[in-house]
Write a protein that binds this DNA or RNA. Structure first.
Lengths: 157, 157
DNA sequence: TCGACTTGGTTGTCGCTGCAACTAAGTTAG
DNA sequence: CTAACTTAGTTGCAGCGACAACCAAGTCGA
């Protein structure tokens, strides 16, 4: 690897190690949510009926079904979501945002966006944002060929 | 957030969620190492005497001292590193790469670099690499003002 | 229509990391 | 010199995520 390749790679590794803890910390102190929980709630918030089937929720949040199952169980215990049996497929469960959950996620979103702006968006100019979007898309496609991820936060983030 | 900002942000979040598992998976199957363990061993490999003090090793690998302590304990049990008392400060411990550890990390490096190339480097042109390096540096500085991270893999990665 | 296979989901266990508490060694002010 | 403080490191516990095993429901072929 030459200088440029190495610099690009190291900076990318740095990002993947530093960014997630920063997001978790902000959301944890401001809203008692992990970033993953926030993603789950945000996805539900913008879904029709505030309801999404577990399998699809897992795909949207780029998680596995076991992981989601655990998290949804905890969120349900906190009263932020409900689990409903799916009427058309009795194996499936639909996850629905509760009123409490809706209030929580709405209140959390503002501060989270502020944080993302201060940390990332506002530090890059338009050209850099465009470059990042393009590079990110390319690499995400390589990392996740099924490309199921991340069509969710959209209006939230 | 407008379209461009949102696209950049989502692609960045995607990267931070997809890249680390990919690195861990490759290193785990090819060398029975987590990416973090690989970083530790790589750092030691290029240090004078193959030895680094725990505190500095923690800083170089962007980890906390407790985390490093646990990992070094495991690596020592596997015979890949040694813990030596520091001669000049009796509180400190120096971590040294063993011969086995050296062989392991050297054997692991080639495959790891191949993986990184296939996944990232080879998918970007020179302009994109330069943009990524610049953006990454900017954001890393925002995320980690002390900037202690990532002066290590250098020749390895 | 019945057996084999697939799909949706849950549960249990294990391993790793964060955090707080703690020990030990070094440093500094009086 | 010694009491207060800081620094280096370890340990124990708790929480989360991966994985495998499992159950239940749906599908499909003969």
């Amino acid at each position: 690897m030459d200088e440029l390749e190495s610099a690009a790679w190291l900076s990318l590794v740095g990002l993947t190690e530093l960014l997630p803890p920063s997001l978790d910390a902000q959301l944890q102190t401001d809203a008692q949510l992990t970033h993953f929980e926030f993603q789950v709630l945000s996805t539900l918030r913008f879904a029709p009926e505030q309801t999404v089937q577990s399998k699809d929720l897992a795909a949207s949040t780029n998680s596995t079904l076991p992981r989601l199952s655990h998290v949804v169980t905890r969120l349900e215990q906190r009263g932020l979501v409900r689990k409903l049996p799916c009427p058309t497929d009795r194996r499936a469960t639909n996850v629905q945002l509760s009123d409490d959950g809706r209030r929580i996620v709405i209140r959390a979103t503002g501060g989270h966006i502020d944080h993302v702006r201060r940390l990332v968006i506002d530090r890059l100019d338009r050209d850099e944002l465009a470059a990042l979007a393009k590079i990110g898309t390319t690499l995400n496609r390589a990392l996740d060929p099924s490309d199921r991820f991340a069509r969710h936060i959209r209006d939230a983030d």
